[in-house]
């Protein structure tokens, strides 16, 4: 899941300053699941914007809050926003950076305001009520070799051949000894599964071309693409 966090209100107020007609758009995808950017949050943000204007003695914005299924889907965004977008000065998006850019790309004459900071690809630890980064989308998964623990993401140095000297009792010095050392986790998991051969294996330098920005992907066969072109 894409983990997001609402921006500080001050920042949102600043970006929406003097704008009259605002469409606040929640996303029912990832940001809704973690209760940051769904319909409820869109409505709350609408109220907060209105209160802020009132407190400052400014004119009320004419704001409307809606939520759409997924802001990262061009089809869904077009269907939902195309009929109403002309009524607004700006869109305030409660989606991740993908959603914001999808809207920005589709409606190039409308101002788009991100109300969310996109944090990382992560997991919700409901017990501790914490989100943990798990994947950097490096483009070349090695989780088989590492006992299901991603060192590129969960090791502060992204080491392919760890651990380094910065761990003590399985904790990482980066971030003040709060985080687990990914390589000690990997060691423990592989040991338990009798696969320390995978731990000891030397991993060659990574080919960073697979994660060169901007990446694109097509599931069409090459000849299909050629015909289209």
């Amino acid at each position: 899941m894409i983990i997001v966090q609402q921006k500080p209100l001050k920042e949102i107020f600043e970006m929406t300053k003097n704008l009259k007609k605002l469409l606040i758009v929640g996303c029912d995808g990832c940001s809704s699941v973690i209760q940051v950017g769904g319909e409820r949050q869109a409505n709350i943000l609408k109220s907060l914007l209105e209160i802020n204007r009132k407190v400052k003695g400014e004119k009320d914005p004419s704001a409307k809050a809606i939520s759409i299924l997924r802001q990262c889907d061009r089809q869904i965004v077009t269907t939902a926003l195309d009929p109403i977008i002309k009524d607004y000065d700006a869109i305030v998006s409660l989606s991740c950076g993908v959603g914001v850019q999808t809207i920005a790309d589709l409606f190039q004459s409308t101002l788009i305001i991100p109300a969310i900071d996109t944090k990382f690809l992560g997991m919700h630890d409901t017990k501790a009520d914490k989100f943990h980064e798990m994947c950097t989308a490096c483009g070349e998964c090695i989780l088989f070799e590492t006992g299901g623990v991603c060192p590129l993401t969960r090791c502060a140095k992204s080491l392919l051949n760890g651990p380094c000297g910065g761990q003590a009792n399985g904790r990482c010095e980066v971030g003040g000894w709060k985080n687990d050392c990914a390589w000690i986790l990997i060691f423990n998991r592989l040991k338990e599964r009798n696969r320390l051969d995978l731990f000891t294996k030397f991993r060659l330098p990574k080919d960073y071309r697979v994660s060169r920005h901007p990446r694109e992907l097509s599931f069409k066969a090459e000849n299909e693409e050629a015909t289209e072109a």
């Binding site: 992204s158 080491l159 392919l160 051949n161 991993r203 330098p205």
Partner: peptide, 8 residues
């Protein structure tokens, strides 16, 4: 950076 690590 950490493009390489000490092993690579």
């Amino acid at each position: 950076v950490f493009d390489l690590d000490s092993a690579t």
